Simulated scan of single mutants.
Amino acid sequence: MLRRLGPLPRATVPVSVAASLAVSLALGLAACSSDANGPDGASGAAPDGTPSSVPSPRLHDLEGTAPQTVEGRDGYLFIGTDFDLSCGSGEHFDDYLTALGDLATVVAASGREVVWTVAPDKSTTLVDRLPETVPQDACFRENQRWQEHLLGAVDEPHYVDTLALLRAADADGEQVYWRGDSHWTSYGASLWLLAALDRLAPEVADRVEVTEGTVERTGDLYVMAGRDDVESAPSTTFSTGNTMETIPGRTPFDPATESFGPLQWRTVPGDGMLPGRTLVIGDSFSYAGLDLTLPLVERGAFAWFQYLDTKVLAQQVAAADTVVVEVAQRTLTHSSVATQEFVDQVEAALAD
Rank of each mutant, 00 (worst) to 15 (best):
D309H: 05
S182Y: 07
V230I: 08
F305S: 10
L163W: 04
V115G: 05
G188T: 13
D344I: 12
E212W: 02
T267K: 00
A314W: 03
V107D: 01
L332Q: 01
V13C: 07
E245H: 10
L100E: 04
R141E: 03
V176E: 00
A104V: 02
A164R: 04
D172W: 01
V127C: 13
R266Q: 07
L29M: 13
L59S: 06
A31P: 02
Q264H: 14
W265G: 08
V127Y: 06
Q147W: 15
T243R: 09
P55G: 14
T133H: 04
E298C: 12
L25H: 12
S16W: 14
S123Q: 09
D35I: 15
R277Y: 15
D271Q: 13
R141N: 02
E209C: 09
E203I: 02
E71I: 11
G152H: 07
Q144V: 09
R4L: 00
F140R: 05
V312Y: 10
V204S: 00
L97S: 00
W146C: 05
S86I: 03
P51D: 01
A314F: 06
A256G: 12
S123C: 02
P55D: 11
L350H: 05
V17F: 15
A303P: 14
F140E: 08
P67Q: 02
S190Y: 03
L85T: 03
D155A: 07
H183D: 06
A349E: 10
N143K: 02
G241S: 05
P255V: 00
W184M: 10
A195R: 09
P255F: 03
A169K: 02
S110N: 14
L21K: 15
A314I: 04
R199T: 14
L290Y: 10
E212T: 06
G173Y: 08
V70W: 01
L126N: 04
L8W: 00
H183P: 04
D84L: 05
D170Y: 05
S186F: 02
P269N: 00
G72S: 12
V118W: 07
G300L: 05
G101N: 05
T310N: 14
K122I: 07
T246K: 15
F83G: 13
T240S: 10
Y177P: 01
G282Q: 07
L308A: 04
D352R: 15
D254Y: 00
L296A: 09
P47G: 13
T237H: 12
D128G: 09
L332K: 02
A168T: 04
Q68C: 06
V115D: 08
Q315G: 05
D309E: 08
W265A: 07
E245C: 11
A164E: 14
V127L: 13
I281N: 06
Y76M: 12
P255H: 02
C32W: 03
Y177S: 09
V297P: 01
T124P: 09
D271A: 12
H158G: 03
A314S: 04
G6M: 13
L2C: 00
A320S: 15
D181C: 10
Q329S: 14
L166Y: 00
A26I: 13
A225D: 08
T310M: 10
Q264R: 14
P157L: 06
T310L: 15
A233W: 15
R179G: 10
L103V: 09
P252W: 08
R179Y: 12
G219D: 15
P7I: 11
D228P: 13
E245T: 14
Y96T: 05
G219R: 14
L274T: 00
G289R: 08
T240D: 03
C87Q: 04
